[in-house]
Amino acid sequence: MKFKYEIEGGNFSKAGNASSAVKKMLKQLNVPPPIIKRLVVALYEGEVNVVAHAWNGCIQVDIEPHRIFVIIEDEGPGIPDIDQAMQEGYSTASQAVREMGFGAGMGLPNMKKNADELNITSEVGKGTKVEITTLLNE
């Protein structure tokens, strides 16, 4: 089963809407709550990154028997140095975004902690693709 949700870049009033829609859908599909809880953290961080940095993007969720595979893809400035971006505390967020309580450099580390597999590819000036795998262990 595949689902797709759009993310609007720059619009903080809608940040979290896509993650919330995915969460509702996973609940309806009776995915175990601990799995939903972890995935939602990773999804929200990914969504906020698109809102804070990119022009637009989307979340694609593919639910398979043994795993949930998520792609968060955007058209945006890209990440020049992914290793640096993964470091706790590193952020390129604007002052305005930081004042809202984002941009503390915790987003990507949070995503890594809450995904069974995290894969990020990015092209500067084009965009970023984040792949999150969550295993559905019986």
């Binding site: 903080f12 993650s19 919330s20 969460k23 939602v40 953290v41 929200y44 809202m100």
Partner: peptide
Amino acid sequence: TLQTHKNVMAVASL
């Protein structure tokens, strides 16, 4: 918290 903007509710809900 002392944050009052809408994203607080998004996080609270999630």
